[in-house]
């Protein structure tokens, strides 16, 4: 990282740490959700943005992560922080397994298969065979953790800092992964899978692995989200959740790590504002934004910012 990037990062982190002391508990909760969505979007972006595999069903992995945490906390009394690695591991395996048949599907067909997964998931969760664990239609209620070690923080503030720590860890890991050998292999497969294969990239392995890692990120986000919302129920994980994630990565910027944060801010706050118009308005706005971004700003907010910065620098050099 250049020095300027480090300074920007430090300022953003300082702001993020100061935030819960400046706004109400409810706003803090909303920003916690922004962090949660950012992790989920990063996961989807690893798969769709970097590896070129389209998923319209990532809500499913979010749901699996959320249910892992809820069941572990509710039925087994596991502490909330210990559920995150489990949720991540379960989703890693689930994603990897779903990724294996997905190997044979490209582009449109993969979109179809994942769309089917996203649509049918709530029904699977309601099924009476798993009702003992999932609580059926009623879902599971879990309690919000208090700040440990007698820290003078409200539960909302504590959860925000906890999520922030997890998010920083996940983003750092993703950055290392994507800039390393595997990340380059993923991009190579996206751009030209035959060329990648001739270069010696194990396409099958890398693609399944991308699916697994992507699902793991989204699963961890789901686990955090469940703790923050204190509630899981099948109908909150319908196909529209998966579509929200798609909106997030398209608006934030495909194949961009910072894009996940812009996308998360967008999907958290724009519906809040639009909700005042009509219950249907947020979705109409999401839809219109999707089309506008595809036509006018295919690289999303992150890409537009990058371009603006490059222009500004070029101008300064010319002067």
């Amino acid at each position: 990282m250049s020095r300027r990037q480090l300074i920007v990062l430090a300022v953003v982190l300082a702001l993020a740490c100061a935030l819960p002391f400046l706004v109400s508990n409810y706003r803090t909760f909303q920003f916690t959700l922004v962090l949660v969505y950012a992790i989920a979007l990063l996961g989807l972006n690893i798969l769709t943005g970097y590896n070129g595999q389209i998923s319209l069903g990532h809500g499913a992995f979010y749901a699996i992560g959320a249910y892992c945490t809820a069941i572990l906390m509710d039925k087994f009394g596991v502490p909330y922080w210990a559920t995150l690695p489990v949720a991540g591991a379960v989703c890693l395996v689930a994603g990897f397994l779903f990724g294996l048949p997905a190997l044979r599907l490209e582009g449109l067909y993969l979109a179809l298969a994942t769309f089917a997964l996203g649509v049918s998931l709530p029904q699977l969760l309601k099924n009476h065979h798993v009702e003992k664990w999932t609580g059926g239609v009623q879902g599971i209620v879990i309690s919000k953790p208090d700040a440990p070690f007698g820290l003078p923080l409200s539960p909302d503030q504590w959860l925000y800092f906890f999520s922030l720590a997890v998010a920083i860890l996940m983003f750092a890991l993703a950055r290392n992964l994507l800039r390393g050998r595997i990340g380059r292999a993923m991009v190579a497969i996206r751009d030209h899978h035959i060329a990648a294969e001739t270069m010696g990239v194990d396409t099958a392995m890398v693609k399944s692995l991308s699916f697994g890692v992507s699902a793991m990120y989204t699963g961890v986000a789901g686990a955090l989200g469940a703790i923050a919302v204190q509630f899981v129920a099948p109908d909150s994980f319908n196909i529209f959740l998966s579509i929200v994630f798609l909106v997030g990565i398209v608006v934030g910027g495909l194949a961009s790590i910072t894009g996940a944060i812009y996308g998360a801010l967008f999907i958290q706050f724009v519906p809040n504002i639009a909700d005042e118009l009509s219950k249907a308005a947020p979705w109409a706005i999401f839809g219109v934004f999707l089309i506008l971004f595809v036509y006018l700003m295919p690289a999303g907010v992150a890409g537009a910012l990058r371009m603006a910065l490059a222009r500004w620098q070029a101008k300064r050099q010319n002067d």
């Binding site: 769709t48 070129g52 389209i54 319209l56 582009g107 449109l108 979109a111 529209f240 579509i243 798609l246 398209v250 495909l254 219950k279 249907a280 308005a281 947020p282 979705w283 109409a284 999401f286 839809g287 219109v288 999707l290 089309i291 595809v294 295919p298």
Partner: peptide, 20 residues
């Protein structure tokens, strides 16, 4: 393909919400 799928999904969402 991704752009086209996104446009289809956008259409789905818009028609659904406008009807609602």
């Amino acid at each position: 393909v991704l752009a086209v799928v996104v446009v289809f999904i956008a259409l789905l969402v818009i028609l659904n919400s406008v009807t609602g």
